[in-house]
C-alpha cells in the first residue's frame, strides 16, 4: 500500500516553522518511513503530484500568491494544519494590518530611509505578487482543520500532531507543547 503523503508550504512566514519541523532530528527518518513528501520546500517539489493526507501551512496570507497556494493546498489535502502564529493570526507580518496598504508600499518603495528607487514609482511588475489590504490568518481564507500555535511550534508539537493524525488518533498535546511564542 502506498504511504500517505504530506505537503508543506511557507506563505508569509520566515521558514522558522519549517526549521522546527526539521528539528525533530533523527525522527525525520521515522517520518519518511511513515509518509512521502509531496509539494514542499523540503524536497523542492514545486507542484502537487497527487492527493495528500496532510498539508502543513506556515505563514499567513499577505499577497495574492499566498492565497493561490493556500487554496491549492486546500484542494489537494484532506487535512490542513495551520502551523505557527503567522498562519494562525498573521504573526509579525500582520503588524502592518493597522496601517493602510498605500502607506506600507510608499514606505517600502518610496520613502523608506534606505530606499533607492530612481523611478519614484511603486513597481507594478507581475512578478511581484499584489499585496492584500492586510495579512489574513489562513482560516479566514480557507477551512483549516487544526492549529498548532507557537513561534515556531516546538518540534515535538509538530511531531506529536503528525503521529497522531497518521495513526488516526485525536491530537492531544500536553500542556508544555501548546505555547504562543
Amino acid at each position: 500500500m502506498a504511504k500517505p503523503k504530506i505537503a508543506t508550504t511557507s506563505l508569509a512566514g520566515c521558514f522558522g516553522c519549517h526549521m522546527s519541523l526539521l528539528d525533530i532530528d533523527d525522527r525525520i527518518l521515522k517520518l519518511i518511513e511513515l509518509v512521502d513528501f509531496d509539494k514542499s520546500p523540503i524536497d523542492d517539489i514545486k507542484e502537487f503530484t497527487g492527493r495528500c493526507t496532510v498539508g502543513l501551512i506556515e505563514g499567513g496570507c499577505a499577497n495574492e500568491e499566498n492565497v493561490k497556494v493556500l487554496q491549492d493546498f486546500r484542494r489537494h489535502c484532506d487535512i490542513l494544519i495551520s502551523v505557527g502564529d503567522c498562519a494562525i493570526n498573521g504573526g509579525i507580518p500582520a503588524l502592518r494590518n493597522t496601517i493602510p496598504i498605500k502607506e506600507c508600499l510608499e514606505e517600502a518603495y518610496l520613502n523608506g530611509p534606505t530606499v533607492h528607487n530612481p523611478s519614484g514609482k511603486i513597481p507594478g511588475d507581475p512578478e511581484i505578487p499584489l499585496m492584500l489590504d492586510r495579512v489574513y490568518p489562513c482560516h479566514e481564507v480557507v477551512k483549516i482543520d487544526y492549529h498548532l500555535p507557537g513561534c515556531p511550534p516546538p518540534a515535538d508539537t509538530i511531531w506529536e500532531a503528525l503521529v497522531a493524525l497518521l495513526s488516526d488518533k485525536p491530537i492531544e498535546l500536553p500542556y508544555e507543547l501548546v505555547k504562543y511564542d
Partner: peptide, 19 residues
C-alpha cells in the same frame, strides 16, 4: 473548502489601484 467570506478581489483592489 474555501471561506465564502474571503473576498480576494476586495482584498486586492487597493493594491491594483496603487500598482
Amino acid at each position: 473548502g474555501l471561506q465564502p467570506s474571503f473576498d480576494i478581489h476586495a482584498a486586492m483592489s487597493e493594491s491594483e489601484k496603487i500598482t
